[in-house]
């Protein structure tokens, strides 16, 4: 009976439309607001900082002279540097590619910054890089992590470790006649097969420094490449 009255019908319709409109409008506002905040968090941050950003001071187009262990000199060129924000994970990233025509090398240095840090110590320990070189993969800690905690020791021709089995710190190192200080060492892993699904321990080492970047890579076959700077 009540519904039969035109006025009532109009009122109910208006009420329903209003409710629908408000509900939709409300939802839209909420999602838009959340989206904006999320976007702001992602986009308003500055680029990577510290060890991850400054490692090697690599600039696109730069070439770095390197020496292959069997005597071949070759330039390693910084072919690309890409940095930005991963919109899905909201993590800052930086990729650096070092390449040479021959030997046919391609080294990718990847840095990802976490979305937040618990404290300064967490920040220091999260300040890592991943270096991919052929099938070898190295994880580079910020050398500061190991500066006061680890020393490389050698006895009976093999290295012995004091603290972290994957990464070490060397005070001073001579490479091709040039002295480098605050050098860290990363012990490598390698992909087990062409499927590249599983990493296993490799007898490979990467020596690096925050300022100059990659200094030397020892490979499993006994060969190595090392930076060849003027004395």
């Amino acid at each position: 009976m009540l519904m039969n009255r035109p006025c009532t019908r109009i009122l109910i319709s208006l009420f329903a439309m209003c409710a629908l409109f408000c509900a939709c409008g409300g939802d839209s506002d909420v999602s838009a607001e959340a989206g904006d905040n999320y976007s702001e968090r992602c986009y308003d941050q500055k680029n990577l900082e510290g060890f991850q950003a400054d490692f090697g001071n690599y600039r696109r187009g730069q070439t770095i002279p390197f020496l292959f262990s069997d005597g071949l000199m070759f330039p390693l060129a910084v072919s690309d540097v890409e940095q930005g924000m991963d919109e899905v994970t909201c993590r800052k990233y930086k990729f650096t590619w070092l390449e040479s025509s021959f030997p046919i090398y391609s080294i990718k240095i990847s840095a990802y910054a976490p979305t937040f840090y618990y404290n300064e110590v967490d920040k220091l320990y999260s300040d890592t890089l991943r270096v991919t070189f052929g099938q070898y993969v190295f994880t580079l800690d910020n050398p500061e992590v190991h500066k006061n905690s680890t020393r490389i020791r050698r006895s009976n021709g093999s290295d012995s470790l004091a603290y972290n089995p994957d990464s070490l710190f060397v005070d001073t190192m001579m490479i091709n006649g040039v002295k480098y200080t605050d050098v860290a060492v990363s012990y490598g892993r390698k992909y087990e097969s062409v499927s590249q699904t599983k990493l296993v321990k490799a007898d490979a080492r990467l020596y690096y420094q925050a300022e100059k970047g990659i200094l030397k890579i020892d490979m499993e076959d006994g060969s190595s490449i090392s930076i060849r700077e003027e004395d």
Binding site: I104, Y105, S106, G134, Q135, Y136, Y191, V194, Q196, D221
Partner: peptide, 27 residues
């Protein structure tokens, strides 16, 4: 350099070939 390679040939009802060659240190 050492290069790992794999070749997967499809079966008779679904022929095809997927080949991969990845060198140890070189690109």
């Amino acid at each position: 350099d050492k290069v790992a390679q794999s070749a997967e040939f499809g079966k008779d009802d679904k022929p095809g070939l997927t080949y991969k060659a990845l060198a140890m240190s070189s690109a």
